[in-house]
Design a protein around this nucleic acid. Structure first.
Lengths: 358, 358
DNA sequence: CACGCAGGATAAACCGATTTACTTTGGGAT
DNA sequence: ATCCCAAAGTAAATCGGTTTATCCTGCGTG
């Protein structure tokens, strides 16, 4: 059987011959077209089973304009967030009978655009793009130029051409403000350790807006950079030296996982206790955050939902079911209130965000 | 241009017409076959540029037996290890002019086998498999049955059919023994929190072998399970209750990232200080480990090297450059000696392992 | 009974490349 | 001048499906 397989795989014509029908009829049966007599359909299915026939997806797609493939281009595959995103997309694609091709732009817009072109070479039916920076980047532009069907994910706000899906960064950050300002904090440090993308800017705006609304006198410092780790450590240290004792913020809102990591480390090093001396809330949850001592309050992004929504939106466009103006999907985040924020010792999920379109 | 593109892409025949040659000649030029007159080659290249021609990889591969695609099937895409592995594979594939198709088996051997079959449907030139458990699983078996070209990665020992690439778990664990036993520890706990794969077993064996060789009287406890987090927490806690004070181990070797996370958390909760009360060394490094306080000594696996080696081995088999018996590649790990092991406060990388083939 | 029509089936064209088998061309040797 | 061979080029076959245009075959109808 293995040898047989090596020798030559059964083709649709072999099946046709075995079933005593034409290849066209086999093709119909395989794709579930109804205009086939029941007995013929049965014989075809029997032949398929007998010959161990499997369709060649490459040959299958050749003729049509679009193929049962969707593409995904994202900044990297090494973070849990994107890993889960890809997993979700793959699951959805598979369920819809599509294959998924993934590529990482590795932070380069040039590469991003090149990858989009490659996806187009494959005649993908549609493409999911997580831009390096925003919807105004080279990749999205290439998608527009090539007239491709696509959905933009995560580092985007609304787009006039494509559906977009992202966490509701604004609402979630406002909820963080509710939590911190609501428990009496009057001086908060916002810390960002990654490339300043659209998502990060939205988080800052969301927090500041709500915080000032709740307490006009609140003091908010910002410490942002995308320098190497060690430089940032130094920056944090000197910030706290300049803001010693009375001038020290009583809470930190770290805007990304890396940021949370750095801030936590420096808090430890300074010997401050959490949450008594200083509270910490991080954007983007990670495994290790529920296991540190004290555990870290964090905003969890609904990755699975985002993946599912993106896939659904993409397929709707592909199938032509949705044809109207682009939709901006904002998925509500969950706040995992743990110990570092000085509220309850149990993990308490809280929903935040307005959901829906925009 | 975009409209044009939408309407119909240029085919090889369009190029041929524009250049005043036949499609066969264009094909030759495109694939770098030399038997083409220089002036014709130039006219072809000019036409390609003029028409914005891009080859269709699908049509291109249809005729030949194997296509310029390689497949990768791995347990998941959500861990940094596999993420980096995929990144490395993609880079290598791209450099060799191949496309990469990735799929996650999500811990299921049935699914693993099904995915291998799908890869075969695509007529991939070769496939990289990270088995759910070991080289004796359903996926590897399917690879053999279908007579595919493949390389097995990470959770494998030597195979009689395929090249294998993995960290040198044995040597690295022996090095951990050197470190711990060498600094006088006489009672060590081995903790494993993940599915007991071949890799985990090798780590245990490597550590125990060396430890007993160095000190025949050493006391080694094992605490392994793949139960949910909370159950494991409980297990750790009761272990330490049973081994209080004098009976308490002075060091822990955690066999995976999850394990390190759990053990660290429980050590904190018990109020033990590291490394004075108890030392900790973990297998598999993570970002957050250099940022906890104290930072955690860990064995770092050479993911990039593993990816590169796997790709190289696979392409060598594909091109028929390597035809001999399967090779087992064991890549040496690095030990990142940080604070949790009670040695030096600086990060000191140490090479461990014998490298090379087996 | 001839006609029309719909449901099924199929032969053949097609998709866009690669590869094969054959033809043409040019140049050197005889 | 003739012959031969290698280099260069091409028409056509091929890959394995899908789609189209056509062709039956009955069955209901006027």
């Amino acid at each position: 059987m293995a040898a047989d397989d090596k020798l030559r795989r059964a083709t649709i014509h072999d099946v046709a011959r075995a079933a005593g029908v034409s290849a066209a009829t086999v093709s119909k049966v395989l794709r579930g077209v109804t205009s086939v007599r029941a007995d013929n359909a049965d014989r075809v299915r029997q032949a398929v089973a007998d010959l161990d026939y499997r369709m060649d997806p490459v040959a299958s797609g050749l003729r049509g304009e679009q193929r049962r493939i969707i593409g995904a281009v994202l900044p990297d595959l090494e973070s849990a967030f994107f890993g889960k995103l890809v997993t979700g997309l793959e699951r959805a694609a598979e369920a819809a009978g599509y294959h998924l091709i993934v590529s990482a732009s590795r932070g380069s817009e040039t590469r991003e655009a090149a990858l989009i072109e490659r996806m187009n070479d494959w005649r993908v039916a549609g493409c999911v793009l997580v831009p390096v920076r925003s919807e105004r980047g080279a990749g999205a532009q290439k998608l527009r130029d090539l007239g491709m069907t696509a959905v933009l994910v995560d580092r985007v706000s609304a787009d006039e051409r494509f559906d977009t899906v992202a966490s509701d960064n604004h609402a979630a950050s406002a909820a963080v403000a509710d939590l911190l300002i609501g428990t009496g904090h009057k001086h908060v440090l916002l810390h960002g350790a990654t490339q300043i993308s659209k998502a990060i800017r939205t988080r800052v705006a969301g927090f500041e807006g709500r915080a000032r609304a709740l307490d006009p006198d609140v003091e908010i410092d910002e410490l942002m950079s995308d320098e190497p780790f060690d430089t940032q450590r130094g920056a944090i240290r000197s910030y706290f030296e300049e803001h010693a004792d009375g001038a020290r913020p009583t809470a930190v809102f770290s805007l990304s996982q890396h940021s949370t990591l750095l801030v936590l480390s420096e808090i430890r090093r300074m010997g401050l206790t959490m949450p008594e001396d200083i509270a910490l809330v991080g954007f983007d949850d990670a495994d290790w955050m529920q296991i540190t001592w004290p555990s870290i309050t964090a905003v969890a992004q609904p990755v699975a939902t985002i993946a599912e929504r993106a896939a659904r939106a993409l397929f709707a466009r592909i199938e032509g079911e949705s044809t109207g103006f682009p939709v901006q999907y904002l998925e509500p985040c969950t706040m995992l209130v743990r110990q570092s924020a000085g509220q309850g010792t149990h993990e308490t999920p809280r929903r935040s965000g307005r959901g829906g379109q925009g």
